[in-house]
Every structure is written in structure tokens, then in C-alpha cells.
């Protein structure tokens, strides 16, 4: 560490910047999963949706030249996969976790299969907002180079919280998630509400995938996802099914994931293999300390308890 002069502030800013970059796909997938779970279903297939979103988003951006068309294409792919999930789950005796695992496999497989010709080409990437241009420090400039999708995600989290709380449709979703019987008594079509929720959740997960291929790390490759889609399901649980907490959880997880590389880059060289496990250990510890066997988790939709 002889000549590496570093200021604590710079590291902090770098970690925050990393948290935003790494956390954004988690944010979108966990918001999508949050919506789906609030309606009473778990969709483990979002990992497959994420990969399909990343692939179609990249492909659409490459073919059309517009990254935003890519984002839309990714979202629509997510809608289709969400629809398949919902359609299968509403059949009798079909377990939603199993369907999720199947869609994860199929989504990943299809993305790898159809994405072969997309590994080489370079597609138009999403633009970012240079919020750090006031500063001379390249570190701050880089950290505040924030993608528009992140901004949308940040606005979406409280908007979704508001939606659950105050809107009529939000009430439907919550009711269906709390008690299907009560919802039926109110005259709601339980399957339809769940289908829309899963499709909308799929849309968000698909958009999260497009962030991976169209912004960060950028490009399409088979190693693009390191389980973000699965981890987002865990994040929803420790975010207590609250969209705003999903935002915090995603950022925290993103920060934990950037800690390893950041510490190495300033010369902290010991134990990087263990640091790679930090996000997972952190999540597990939080889950263990905040769960309880005697009461249901606060915020947990009642209909999830039978699959919990």
C-alpha cells in the first residue's frame, strides 16, 4: 500500500456508486417479486425472466438501435413469462415454486440458445445522467453517473407502496394475497388479479435484465447473471414485502457485493474469497435475526403462508 493514497470519503463514494450500479437489477427484480408475492404467489422463475430480458433487450437494442426499445422488449418478454407462470399456477395441484424453478430453467435455456448470435455484436447502451458534473473529482463524477433506470426504480418503490396502500387495484392485490376466500366474497376474480400481478412483476424483472445487458456490466453473455433473480426473492423477504424496503435491501446488497473489489483495489488483499460470500452471509444473518417461528412475519401476505 506504499503509494496508494486514499481518502475514506472516496471509498465511501465509490461503494455508494457501486451499490447503485450493482443494486439496480436487484431493485427491479425485487419490486417485481414484491408485487407478485403480495398477490399470494411466489415466482422463483424471475431468474429466467431476468436472463430472457437481458437477451431480448440486447437483441432489440441491437436491431433497432434504440436502447429504450430494448427495455420495452425486455419488459414484454417478462410479461409473457409471467403470464405462463400464472397460467400454470392457477391449475389445480400445481405448485408455484416448482413452476418457478421450471421457468428459471426454460428462461435461462432459451436465453442462451437464442442469444448465441448476440455475444459478439455491440448494441446501443442506455444513457446515464451525469449528476456529478459539479465536482472535479473523477470518483464522484463516476459514482454519480446514474442510469435513468435507477432513477425510475427509486421513484417506482414509493409509488408501489402508495399503490398498495391507497389505490383500488392495490387493495385488490392485497386482498387476494391476504385471503383468497375474502377476495372471492368481495366478488374479485382471484386468478385474474394474480395473473396481472405476476405479469406486471415479470415486466419489472425483464426490465431489470435489460439493465444488465444494456448498461451494467453491459453486453450479452452467458455469465451475465450471477443469481440476481433468485437473490431478489430473498431480498423481498427481508424487505418484509414493502417496496420501499426493497429499495434499501437492494442497495445494501449491492454495496456488500462491491465491498470485495473495492477493498482489493485499495490494497486490502486478505480473504477475498470470503468477501465474495459477504452479501449472502449478510442476507442470511438478517433473515435469521429478524424471523421468528412463533409469529408470521409482519407484512407477509397471508396466502403465502402455505408455501412459506
Amino acid at each position: 500500500m506504499n503509494e496508494t493514497e486514499f481518502s475514506l470519503l472516496n471509498i465511501l463514494i465509490a461503494v455508494i456508486g457501486g451499490a447503485i450500479r450493482v443494486g439496480t437489477p436487484f431493485l427491479f427484480v425485487s419490486l417485481g417479486e414484491c408485487l407478485t408475492e403480495r398477490s399470494g404467489r411466489i415466482n422463483l422463475g424471475l431468474e429466467g425472466t431476468l436472463m430472457m430480458g437481458a437477451m431480448t433487450g440486447y437483441g432489440a437494442s441491437y436491431l433497432s438501435g434504440s436502447p429504450w426499445l430494448g427495455v420495452m422488449a425486455a419488459g414484454m418478454t417478462g410479461v409473457i413469462l409471467g403470464g405462463v407462470h400464472a397460467l400454470l399456477c392457477q391449475q389445480q395441484k400445481v405448485n408455484d415454486i416448482a413452476v418457478g424453478i421450471a421457468l428459471m430453467l426454460l428462461g435461462t435455456g432459451l436465453a442462451f440458445f437464442l442469444g448465441k448470435p448476440l455475444i459478439q455484436p455491440t448494441a446501443a447502451h442506455l444513457p446515464s445522467l451525469h449528476l456529478g458534473s459539479w465536482s472535479d473529482s473523477p470518483v464522484i463524477q463516476a459514482a454519480l453517473d446514474i442510469n435513468v433506470l435507477f432513477v425510475i426504480g427509486v421513484l417506482l418503490a414509493p409509488a408501489m407502496a402508495w399503490f398498495f396502500r391507497y389505490s383500488r387495484w392495490g387493495l385488490y392485490v392485497r386482498t387476494v394475497g391476504e385471503s383468497a376466500d375474502a377476495a372471492r366474497a368481495m366478488g374479485l376474480n382471484v386468478n385474474r388479479v394474480r395473473m396481472y400481478s405476476t405479469m406486471a412483476g415479470g415486466f419489472l424483472a425483464g426490465v431489470g435484465g435489460s439493465f444488465l445487458s444494456l448498461y451494467y456490466p453491459g453486453g450479452w453473455s452467458e455469465g451475465l447473471s450471477s443469481g440476481q433473480g433468485l437473490m431478489a426473492v430473498a431480498l423481498v423477504i427481508f424487505a418484509r414485502w414493502n417496496p420501499v424496503y426493497c429499495l434499501y435491501a437492494s442497495l445494501l446488497f449491492g454495496a456488500a457485493a462491491t465491498l470485495g473489489p473495492t477493498l482489493q483495489s485499495i490494497g486490502m488483499t486478505w480473504g477475498y474469497y470470503l468477501f465474495h460470500a459477504a452479501p449472502y452471509v449478510l442476507t442470511l444473518i438478517i433473515m435469521i435475526t429478524t424471523s421468528s417461528s412463533t409469529r408470521l412475519l409482519s407484512g407477509m401476505p397471508g396466502q403465502l403462508s402455505n408455501v412459506k
Binding site: 503509494e3 496508494t4 450493482v22 455469465g223 473489489p261 482489493q264 483495489s265
Partner: peptide, 29 residues
Amino acid sequence: PKITTTVVFTGGWSLPVKEAEAANSLIDQ
């Protein structure tokens, strides 16, 4: 002779997100 090289080990042969994060961290330094 004053040049230094900072190394970041990602722990795997194909981990795009970690590679990108390592690149950004290094550039930040």
C-alpha cells in the same frame, strides 16, 4: 520504476458483474 500495478482477483473465470465492479473500483483509485 515508480509504476505500481493493483490487482483485483474476482474468484472466477467468467463473472461479468464482478469484473465490471473491479474495473470501476480500480479506476476510482
